[in-house]
Simulated scan of single mutants.
Amino acid sequence: MQQALRNPDLSIILVNYKTPLLIIDCLHSVSNYTSGLTYEVLVVNNDPDPSGQSAVLNAFPQTRWIEMGYNSGFSRANNRGIAESTGRLVLLLNSDTLLVDNVLKRCADVLDSRSEVAAVGPMQLTREGKVHTEAYDGFSQLRRYFYIVPGSGFFKRLLHRLLPDNHYSDPNEVDWLIGSFIMTRRETIQKAGGLDENFFMYAEDVEWCWRLGKQGKILLLRDAFYVHLEYGSSTDYQERKVTHINRFKPQMHVSNLLWVRKQYGAGAYLVLIVHYLTLIPIIFGWKIAVNLLKLQNPFSELANQREFARQVGIFLRFFWKTLFNQKGFYKI
Rank of each mutant, 00 (worst) to 15 (best):
Q311W: 01
R211T: 08
G213N: 05
G87I: 13
L292E: 10
Y330Q: 08
G129A: 08
L323W: 12
S95G: 14
L125I: 07
N16M: 11
V227S: 07
H28D: 12
F299K: 00
W176R: 01
A224K: 00
L37R: 04
W320K: 02
F319T: 02
N45W: 09
T243P: 13
A118M: 06
K249H: 15
S95Q: 01
F308L: 02
A59T: 03
E207H: 15
K18N: 14
D170C: 12
G285E: 06
S11T: 15
Y276V: 13
L195W: 09
P50L: 01
S54T: 05
L163I: 10
M68T: 13
D137R: 00
L212M: 15
F181N: 08
G232H: 02
G81F: 07
S51K: 00
S115R: 05
I82E: 03
N58E: 10
G313Q: 06
V120G: 10
D236H: 06
M183C: 10
F299L: 14
Q263I: 14
L302P: 12
N79W: 04
G81S: 07
N58F: 06
A119S: 09
R211P: 07
Y269E: 05
Q305R: 06
G52P: 11
R76L: 11
Y17E: 03
Q311D: 07
R76H: 07
I288G: 01
Y136K: 06
I82A: 04
L158R: 02
D112V: 03
I332E: 15
V100S: 03
H28Q: 10
